[in-house]
Computed example of a mutant assay.
Amino acid sequence: MALKTATALVAGILLAGCASRYTPTPLPANFPVAKQAKLQAAGHWGVIVDDIEKRIVAELKKSPPRPVFIAEARDPTPFQRALATQLTTSLVNDGHTVSRSPAGSLRVDLDVQALTFAADRPQYRNHGQLASLGAGIWTTRDTPVKLEVASSGGALDTRDTWNAQFAPGETPKTEVIVTVSVSDQYRYVARNTSAYYVADTDRMLYGIIDPLPQEPQLTRIFKVRGDM
């Protein structure tokens, strides 16, 4: 037993010695597990607008009250138009003055950047799924959280509810970065940025126009040189 332990120790030291301490570029590493919401309905747009509005209002309360003016894009996408409309509604319903003119008002700009990443990106949806410890007791695989339920039916409901938090399908290749800025002619008063997944079938709503597939070429032209 002592011989096996010594052999394993020596092997570990040799392997550690083979690992290079210097590399020409940083080694790729994964970020810690995080969740990013996937926009799949107009109702989801309202949810993110409500969150944006709450964060903006929290910053506006730090300064003397002033009306705000929502600056719409010149050629807005359906998503940008909905954001501007719903943000106006949220601010008005919360008692804030939204001006129809920029004069004397804080300007609210909505910037939406749509991005296309590589398709078939890997995902690890099994991370944190529930595992059964016994009758009516479930735990997460990666966190020390135990959930107790009264019956087997309740256990199935608990498992389904846990899994329902993850959007179905592959990881979308489409994402949007939404930045909301509140400013005057001198400074930014409030600003926040959020990123969301977008259903790939809804790319046109966010301003991404995919090129039409090219039709196959059915004829070819040959040039004849010399005497016939």
Rank of each mutant, 00 (worst) to 15 (best):
P64F: 14
S90L: 02
D160Q: 13
D75M: 10
T139W: 05
T7H: 10
F117G: 14
G207Y: 03
A2W: 00
D210K: 03
D111Q: 08
T174K: 01
R100D: 12
Q40T: 09
V180T: 11
V112C: 04
G154N: 04
Q80V: 12
V108P: 00
D202F: 00
D210P: 00
S105L: 02
T5E: 09
I48Y: 11
T89P: 01
P24H: 09
V57F: 15
T139N: 02
S181F: 01
A19E: 00
G43E: 08
R225P: 07
G136V: 06
A167E: 11
F166C: 08
H96I: 02
I70C: 05
A119W: 11
A29N: 05
A8E: 11
T88K: 04
G226D: 09
V92K: 05
T158A: 13
T25C: 06
D184V: 12
R203G: 07
A8Y: 03
T85N: 00
D157G: 07
I13R: 12
A8I: 09
Q86I: 10
Q80H: 14
Y124K: 13
L130C: 03
V108K: 01
I209W: 06
L60K: 15
P213S: 12
R100T: 12
C18D: 03
Q129I: 11
G17Q: 00
D109G: 01
F222L: 05
Q165A: 13
D200T: 08
I208Q: 07
